[in-house]
């Protein structure tokens, strides 16, 4: 399968301000979550990927074609910027029809495309209203619909869920997953890690203009050897379970929570630990209420890599 996006030692500076530095990246179809602290270079990267900026060094190609100064490519790319830029008096429907005409659709077809796109984000009822009367969440949804209007192969979304209410967060998340399930590609940035987790398990983590990690969250977590895995076991006989592991040299720390009848292990070998735990539970016929891994999530990966605490 051909890669959708390829970047080769891509760099961009603004004077002496660093945007991205020496990024090499190959993205295949699917949903990719782009994350990083403020000022990490996410938006610069997305602007490079959508041809709004020319790299100082390196190359970026989408579908094998160069991005900058290649308007034909944008028939196949949809972009949703972070900030609003609308003609205030125009209605949502007219705005989308206009964009569709720019993509080369006939007047009638443009109207149909606009209607479909608005329907997908639930704005068909307010299609005739001026955009200036929209709430923040509605404007945000309109941006998403503008990006999917021409049914692109690659969708680039910069903070698409900012200001969107929980109901539409769920629906747009589904929309994105659904979009990618048809063999297409989505690159989506967000500051809300549970949101990224709901959309995808593939992430690109940018920090200080560089890529810190790229790939499957679980795999990345597995590679972080220096950070032992946390396993929390909640059971009526939680101290007995703990006793079993006191002598185990793969268990680094054991912590108790008397109130919640819980014991939390830190282990440097999950395979070994879970094998022992499963066997012990079966042999001793123990009752278990919960087994969870509190640091087996994106927030933990993010904290470990970006280095807060």
């Amino acid at each position: 399968m051909a890669p959708v996006l390829e970047a080769e030692s891509l760099s961009k500076w603004y004077g002496n301000i660093l945007g991205v530095s020496d990024i090499s990246l190959v993205l295949m179809p699917g949903v990719h979550g782009l994350l990083g602290p403020n000022g990490a270079g996410k938006t610069t990267f997305l602007r490079l990927a959508s041809g709004q900026l020319k790299p100082n060094r390196g190359r970026i190609r989408i579908f094998g074609e160069p991005v900058f100064n290649n308007p034909g490519l944008f028939q196949r790319v949809g972009f949703c910027p972070e900030n609003d830029a609308y003609y205030r008096g125009v209605s949502g429907g007219d705005y989308l029809s206009f964009l569709a005409r720019l993509h080369g659709a006939s007047t009638q077809k443009a109207r149909n495309l606009a209607r479909t796109a608005l329907h997908q984000v639930g704005l068909e009822e307010v299609a005739g209203k001026a955009i200036s009367a929209y709430s923040l969440g509605m404007r945000q949804r309109l941006k998403v619909s503008a990006a999917i209007l021409h049914d692109p192969q690659l969708l680039i979304l910069d903070e698409p869920l900012k200001g969107v209410d929980p109901l539409w967060r769920v629906r747009i998340t589904d929309l994105i997953r659904d979009f990618a399930s048809r063999g297409r590609t989505v690159i989506v940035s967000s500051h809300v890690l549970p949101e990224i987790e709901a959309m995808t398990n593939r992430i690109v983590l940018i920090h200080q203009g560089q890529i810190l990690a790229e790939g499957d969250i679980q795999e990345i977590r597995g590679l972080l050897d220096s950070h032992p895995h946390m396993v929390s076991v909640c059971a009526p006989h939680f101290r007995r379970i703990a006793e079993r592991f006191v002598g185990d040299h793969h268990v680094l720390t054991i912590r108790f929570d008397n109130v919640r009848q819980k014991v939390v292990f830190n282990t440097d070998n999950r395979d070994h630990f879970f094998a022992c735990l499963n066997r012990f539970v079966v042999e001793e016929n123990l009752e278990i209420e919960e087994i969870t891994s509190p640091d087996d999530n994106l927030q933990a990966v993010f904290n470990y890599l970006v280095g807060r605490k």
Binding site: N278, L286, I288, E290, T292
Partner: peptide, 20 residues
């Protein structure tokens, strides 16, 4: 529910997450 653990042991998989 606890018989899931025996089942896992018998079929060679690990239960790494378990909760109601």
């Amino acid at each position: 529910p606890m018989s899931l653990f025996r089942l896992a042991l018998d079929t060679g998989v690990q239960i790494r997450h378990f909760r109601p």
